[in-house]
Write a protein that binds this DNA or RNA. Structure first.
Lengths: 226, 226
DNA sequence: GTCTATAGTTGGATAGAC
DNA sequence: GTCTATCCAACTATAGAC
């Protein structure tokens, strides 16, 4: 692997493990057994590394939340969407650990972030309109936007929230806590469930409850490569 | 006013205005026209200043969310509670701007924060049980905790969320945006409104909509003393 | 491309005079 | 209590040799 690529991978891992704030360019270089000077040969500064990781994030967000083409809406479809959300939160958890802080230090990153958030919101709105038309959600047109906005807020800050409520240091959120967040998002949707769709929501909830349980005690702080 | 007191007040104002992260002990001293050495005579470090402000926060939280004693539950009662929430968010917005970050730098502050959050959650649960018994909320016993937890989460991170979604720099959230957050919390409650209580929720919402509108364009970044 | 060495900056914190 | 002067640590970033 090229050095530039290795720097990105190592930064990503270290950020997730210890928190972006606690990892300096020196740490990254030391971890790779290269010199700080070498790192600065490949990147102008730490922000540029973060921006590279962010580009991958942006891509993942766009790919994962396209309109669904399934003919029948069932728990399986729900789970595929929520799993996509879970993966994004887990793989980029260092960003969610410290979103406001990271964005406040890089104007251009903030602008890009807002753009991709806006697109994500639109994609979600599309998904929810589809769900309404398919008779899954009993929701008024004008209620969709606030719901999506709330869900995005919960998704974006769940990790920070769990950190403030737990003993563990930044970077050590468990997968179990993340599944709890997924369940919370599901709960927000469920308040708009159309009659007769109980089974879909219940089966989905059941699935994530079992995921939550089997990941509760694992306090693993592995990087993204596991 | 004693110097110690003036340091607290000045820090508080500056934190709210520019973000806690951007204010150093030097800034605080300069703002008061005292020397850094003098500041360090009164406080061991910046964390100690923050802890003092936090103690005031804790107190306010406890006082403001006692069980209600009103005989009839109406929009006025709702508004008095939401106003208390608004005041807390507004006056201590520098904390909410950067909660995870501040807590990650001070283990003992984090412990205290968690304790007061727990108490606040219990107080809110009590309030909601009361509302259920008074026939305002149509909610199962076991649904109260997740609802309160979601509301606390939204309350704690609304300011950070609005920052990530807006152009303005940290510390410059408008009162209008905060009222929007209050409305969002109200919306979460409203999904559990008992039949016949529509008027209470609607009148409350109407009130905060008007507040939101009249504070929307004011981008004022005044301190807490205004 | 990569290294060593080092300059520059900032913010936290203290010593000692007044 | 307050000031001046200064130190220290951490981190960013660059220069120049190999």
């Amino acid at each position: 692997m090229k050095t530039r690529e290795r720097i990105i991978q190592a930064s990503w891992e270290l950020f997730n493990k210890h928190g972006e704030r606690n990892i300096t360019t020196n740490h990254i270089a030391a971890h790779l057994n290269i010199s700080p000077g070498n790192l600065y040969y490949h990147f102008r500064n730490k922000e540029e590394i973060i921006r590279c990781i962010f580009n991958l994030y942006e891509q993942q967000l766009q790919e994962h939340f396209q309109p669904y083409i399934a003919e029948i809406v069932d728990a399986e479809l729900f789970i595929s969407y929520f799993d996509a959300l879970f993966d994004t939160l887990w793989e980029y958890r260092f960003m969610y650990n410290n979103l406001a802080d990271i964005l406040s230090r890089d104007e251009s990153l903030k602008t890009n972030f807002q753009l991709s958030q806006k697109q994500w919101a639109q994609q979600l709105c599309q998904n929810y309109i589809q769900l309404q038309q398919d008779g899954i959600l009993n929701i008024h047109e004008e209620e969709i936007e606030p719901l999506v906005d709330t869900i995005i807020m919960v998704a974006n800050f769940w990790i920070s929230y769990k950190f403030t409520q737990s003993l563990s240091p930044i970077g050590s959120i468990s997968k179990g806590s993340l599944y709890e967040g997924i369940l919370r998002v599901l709960l927000l949707m469920q308040r708009y469930a159309a009659p007769g769709t109980e089974e879909i929501f219940e089966k989905t909830a059941e699935y994530y409850h079992s995921q939550e349980m089997s990941n509760k005690l694992s306090l693993e702080t592995h990087g993204i490569m596991e």
